[in-house]
């Protein structure tokens, strides 16, 4: 008897649970948010957009060359091809869409149209409008390579530093 009652209760509960989304769609509809986990914290390798694929390929080419797997000639060919692919992917996505979680400041490309004379660029604030700028007018980073400054991010280096304390780049000897 107990079993029969338990079975009937189980069946009733299950039927209610299953039919509720159909009987009360509006109530259920609000619960959409908990269908499936959000994608925060997902594996970056799960991003299979053309941009991410091309960027990863560039990275991998670099690494394969560093480990000696790619010859210099192959490296050049692949580098050229995948840089164009990555650039094409970036252009296709338009400015402003960085990595999903990058939150980086992207320079407004239209404000500084490309010119024949390469403008020096600050890593954080983009190309400077001044044609002969030596430092970024917004953060003070050194723009061109110079002794005492990091060659990549332009931060001032500490005395006899072997690595940049800001970005970790090795200081050329």
């Amino acid at each position: 008897m107990f079993e029969l009652v338990a079975g009937i209760l189980l069946a009733t509960g299950a039927v209610y649970f299953v039919l509720r989304p159909i009987l009360y769609p509006e109530v259920e509809g609000r619960g959409t948010g908990n269908e499936g986990r959000g994608d925060e914290g997902e594996d970056p390798e799960d991003d299979l957009s053309p941009r991410a694929v091309a960027l990863r390929a560039l990275k991998e080419i670099e690494f394969d060359r560093a480990t000696g797997k790619l010859s210099d000639a192959d490296y050049d060919v692949l580098k050229t091809r995948y840089t164009s692919e990555a650039l094409a992917a970036l252009r296709a996505e338009g400015p402003g869409s960085g990595m999903r979680d990058a939150g980086s400041v992207v320079p407004d490309a239209t404000a500084h149209p490309a010119s024949r004379i390469p403008h020096l660029a600050c890593p954080a604030h983009g190309p400077r409008p001044e044609p002969d700028a030596a430092f970024c007018s917004e953060c003070g980073c050194r723009l061109a390579a110079a002794p005492g400054y990091c060659a990549r991010c332009g931060s001032a280096l500490e005395h006899e530093a072997r690595y940049c304390h800001a970005c970790g780049t090795r200081v050329a000897a």
Partner: peptide, 16 residues
């Protein structure tokens, strides 16, 4: 694992 993704060439393979 010794062959690079995308392309590889002979002298390099010898080294690998």
């Amino acid at each position: 694992p010794l062959i690079a993704w995308r392309r590889a060439s002979l002298p390099n393979l010898q080294r690998q």
